[in-house]
């Protein structure tokens, strides 16, 4: 009885894993094929492990530039979100005696609002201030997208640190700023690293805001990849190779920072 039930469970999960993984494997396979083999009928199921596509892509100026832009934007917006979020997390998780629910939810609501509602005025505003198509505009826009989630989790992180530590600090005569920098931030470090990695990933993967706000100077690799689909600039195997490169941060985060990924994507409703 037990055995046959397990078989059913294993069957269901195998089907699901196949369905989740096969498109990714197909993408990886395509990136490893020579151009002649990518859109043949019948398809070449096994790639011929030709690395030309990767070589061409990594030597391409446009790809290099957009990868650098994406990296700068992801790091910049993550730093900004962590800076604002950890200060707020410390204030709302440690310095208060009772929770400021209204304020906390105001911060979270920035994540639930539809991006189109914010992007339309930002699109006009950035043009007015001559910030359209600059890295700064994208860093700001991505930071706002991240801040609700980052702060929400950091409030929980700081709240979990025992309040007695504060008293001990005060006896030693440190003020709130020293308490934050010397004691609390280091205590929350491992959690902050996890959330920073998640933020980096979300900014790196982001498509909609970047599509609207960047056109040439601040073009991200995601937008370049999108623009190249359907044009002859890159071959299919080169597009697939770019996609695989773009997926690398994902693989790191799902394997190393799984806990924060789960916590972040579900707004902390489960602990992961």
């Amino acid at each position: 009885m037990r055995k046959s039930q397990n078989k059913l469970d294993i069957g269901i999960i195998s089907v699901f894993l196949t369905w989740s993984l096969i498109p990714i494997l197909w993408l990886l396979g395509t990136s490893l094929k020579s151009e002649l083999y990518v859109d043949t009928i019948p398809p070449h199921w096994i790639p011929n492990f030709d690395l030309t596509a990767y070589k061409k892509i990594l030597e391409n100026d446009a790809i290099q530039k957009t990868l650098t832009n994406s990296l700068i934007i992801a790091i910049g917006s993550t730093l900004l979100a962590i800076f604002c979020g950890s200060l707020a997390g410390f204030a709302l998780g440690q310095l208060v005696t009772k929770r400021h629910i209204e304020f906390e939810f105001w911060i979270l609501s920035s994540r639930l609002a539809p991006p189109i509602a914010i992007i339309l005025p930002l699109f006009i505003g950035f043009q007015y201030f001559h910030l359209q198509d600059t890295l700064l505009a994208l860093i700001l826009a991505h930071a706002v997208m991240l801040i609700g989630l980052v702060t929400w989790i950091l409030i929980e992180t700081f709240r979990a640190i025992p309040k007695e530590i504060q008293d001990a600090c005060e006896v030693d005569g440190c003020n709130e700023w020293q308490m934050f920098i010397k004691i609390m931030f280091p205590l929350a470090r491992s959690s902050i690293i996890g959330i920073a990695s998640l933020s980096f990933l979300l900014s790196w993967n982001e498509f909609f805001l970047s599509l609207v706000l960047s056109s040439s100077n601040s073009l991200t690799v995601q937008v370049l990849l999108y623009q190249s689909i359907g044009y002859q600039t890159f071959s299919l195997s080169q597009l697939a190779a770019t996609s695989v490169i773009v997926l690398l941060p994902t693989l790191i985060v799902v394997s190393v920072f799984q806990k924060q990924l789960i916590q972040g994507l579900t707004f902390g409703s489960v602990k992961g």
Partner: peptide, 25 residues
Amino acid sequence: WFLRAIVMIPMAAAPVATLFNWRYM
């Protein structure tokens, strides 16, 4: 741990990359 890592890839992956692949498939 390992199964969860695999299962999470579709939602944690860059949408442009996976959607390009779907369009191609």
